[in-house]
Design a protein around this nucleic acid. Structure first.
Lengths: 204, 204
DNA sequence: CGTCTATTCGGCACTGAGTGCCGAATATTG
DNA sequence: CAATATTCGGCACTCAGTGCCGAATAGACG
């Protein structure tokens, strides 16, 4: 991850930044939607934000990274939510509540979220870039599970719980994308309940 | 996926292929291990196999695709195994048995498998390319679950089952990679049992 | 105000992945 | 031997990503 310029502004010394990650992200999101990911060059994204190609790569490691900016932010919100959860809530319940809680979006943010997730789940070149971002998300869950189970995070159970939690959540996202207007959190809750039930078809 | 030259040989007409996907895969695997993925150029891989750079891209869509050749083959073996499973075996049991069954490897194939999986799970540029390959694997499971549940494959339950099955299997693979010599299938069986139990910590 | 220093920006040059195109090479068919 | 089918190699091109360096622009300090 690039850590170029701290967003927290108390007016620093040198030349002020001409843009920021968020602005570049929005420019990328717009162009990707209009012309497609492959037919958009970094040059064009940078131009929309009013900076040079070189500067784009100071904010993002790759062309696709711009789309993962918000997602990466969710990882941090996940971790803080896990830190705040009651130690008496059973493990899988705690995970479900945290994931669902982090995914409450304001109505005005939903269209952008839909656009981004639609791109991520349809454009092959973007699926291709998902790996490291998903890993970080999974690790947040694995670390929590590891603390609860009193095991190292890279052992079977914590690993499996982190990975399957993301897997179930992604299924919920995909389902949400193809439906008209059911709430995202409804699908997340459903999918994570199913996970905690071992997909027992009798209990549905 | 590139479909360049049918491997099934009954001696066709034109100029005979100078290499094949398997040979290129082995060349890539060796160079990636020795010099690292990033420090290996497609030019070098092609040279080891005795062909030109241009020809490499006739067999694989990308430099990383060479490493996924065997994995992609497993998807087909998964599908045929699912077709052969007894309709009376409960869903999650069937999935576990099929996945475990497909992952029995001959002892002489294990070193190559370890090398490949180690590269896949440690090199960022390779994690980055995993998405589409994982998707195909998941879809094989989702399609089976969909038939069993009598639902379309792109609905919540089949989707979630396909994705979480891969997630649990990958956790088992990772655990197997970090241990010395426990059998892979042992971990797979453990992880998929845990999945079917909803990671109920009381039953362990 | 003038100078120093910190920080970002823009441009240049370079490597390497991936692609389109076309003629050369090499096989079978008749 | 001629026709046809198929793969190969090479060239040229676009674009992502990176290292480097000087220019630009701000605050700090005399």
């Amino acid at each position: 991850m690039t850590t170029p310029h701290r967003d927290t502004d108390a007016r620093r010394r040198g030349r002020p930044p001409a843009t920021n990650a968020r602005e570049l992200e929005l420019a990328a999101l717009r162009l990707f939607s209009e012309h497609g990911f492959d037919d958009t060059t970094v040059e064009e994204i940078a131009a929309v934000a009013g900076v040079s190609r070189r500067t784009f790569f100071r904010y993002f490691d790759s062309k696709s990274a711009a789309l993962w900016h918000q997602f990466d932010g969710e990882v941090q919100r996940l971790r803080t939510a896990f830190d705040a959860v009651s130690p008496h809530t059973p493990l899988m319940d705690a995970i479900r509540e945290v994931v669902v809680g982090v995914n409450h979006y304001r109505a005005e943010d939903v269209p952008e979220l839909r656009t981004r997730m639609h791109l991520i789940s349809t454009v092959p070149a973007l699926q291709t870039s998902a790996g490291p971002h998903y890993d970080a998300w999974e690790r947040a869950v694995s670390d929590f599970a590891a603390r609860r189970l009193n095991q190292p995070p890279d052992t079977l159970y914590p690993l499996a719980i982190g990975r399957t939690t993301l897997a179930a959540s992604r299924a919920a996202f995909d389902q949400w994308l193809t439906t008209a207007d059911t709430d995202l959190t409804t699908y997340l809750d459903l999918s994570l309940h199913a996970l905690a039930n071992g997909f027992d078809t009798r209990t549905r």
